[in-house]
């Protein structure tokens, strides 16, 4: 570029390009050379820059009040720290929330599973006990029915010399073919022995079953038709096919 005199330079528009930052590096160098040579050009550059700035200030729009804090906090973040965009942050937050929810749901579900199992166990226990009670209740109702029936005979079995204080009642019902035994008193059973009851039919002793000598509830015994008397003996544990008559404890006529 040929050398311009000062006025030519001022007319060239380079100065304006320079202050507006649209000059090429070569043009900038030329302007700076002129500014060094002519202090009034240097002063003019400063004035133009200041005027442009003042002009820009005229167009100022204050940013929202929260902006300053946001910008400054951004600057205080270490440059090395990788910054997440709002969207990524949101995505991560959503993932964490989802994971937490899943975990909670999983925990709740396992909790419910255990609870459910416990309830099932409790229910089946209750069901079993309920069925037992029902059976017991039926048995008691049946016994009560026998006791109240007019056709039931009460057979009193009294102690022999072997057991003078023995006192047992048997409720005997031909129609229902049922026998119920109620102990009032029987001596304690010796070790290895059991009580057994027999029905005398035409002079033959027929086994009517073993019974528990320490149970003071009503007990069912085997009904034997045409029994003429009932007899209780002490037999070896497990019972006998034929009564051991010398150990006869109590008896009574039907």
């Amino acid at each position: 570029m040929e050398k311009l005199n000062k006025n030519e330079f001022l007319e060239s528009g380079l100065l304006e390009q320079y202050v507006l930052k649209i000059a090429t590096p070569e043009e900038e160098a030329i302007v700076e050379e002129y500014a060094q040579h002519f202090p009034e050009i240097a002063a003019q550059i400063k004035e133009m820059q200041a005027a442009l700035e003042a002009y820009a200030m005229q167009h100022a729009v204050p940013p929202p009040p929260g902006m300053k804090k946001q910008v400054l906090s951004e600057l205080n973040t270490p440059a090395s720290a990788s910054r997440l965009s709002f969207g990524t942050g949101l995505l991560i937050a959503a993932c964490i929330a989802l994971a937490l929810t899943s975990f909670l749901l999983f925990k709740t579900q396992s909790l419910y599973k255990v609870e459910n199992q416990n309830l099932q166990i409790a229910f089946s226990e209750l069901e079993t006990s309920c069925l037992e009670k029902e059976k017991q209740s039926e048995a008691i109702a049946q016994q009560l029915h026998i006791l109240r029936a007019p056709s039931t005979k009460r057979v009193q079995l009294l102690g022999t010399a072997n057991a003078p204080d023995a006192d047992v009642a048997v409720y005997w019902n031909e129609q229902e073919a049922t026998g119920l035994l109620q102990i009032a008193y029987l001596p304690p059973i010796p070790e290895g022995k059991t009580y057994q009851i027999w029905a005398d039919v035409d002079g033959v002793m027929i086994n009517a079953g073993l019974f528990n000598g320490e149970n003071f509830d009503l007990q069912n015994i085997q009904f034997i038709a045409r029994a003429e008397s009932l007899n209780i003996t002490l037999e070896p544990a497990g019972g006998s096919d034929h009564p051991t008559v010398e150990f006869l404890q109590a008896n009574g006529k039907v």
Binding site: G13, E16, Q17, M48, A51, A54
Partner: peptide, 25 residues
Amino acid sequence: VKSRLRIGLSKLRTIFDANCVTLGV
């Protein structure tokens, strides 16, 4: 464009007088 820039900037310079320059400084 160039002449309008030159005149415009020179007008701006007069508009924002010495006081404003001081303010900028």
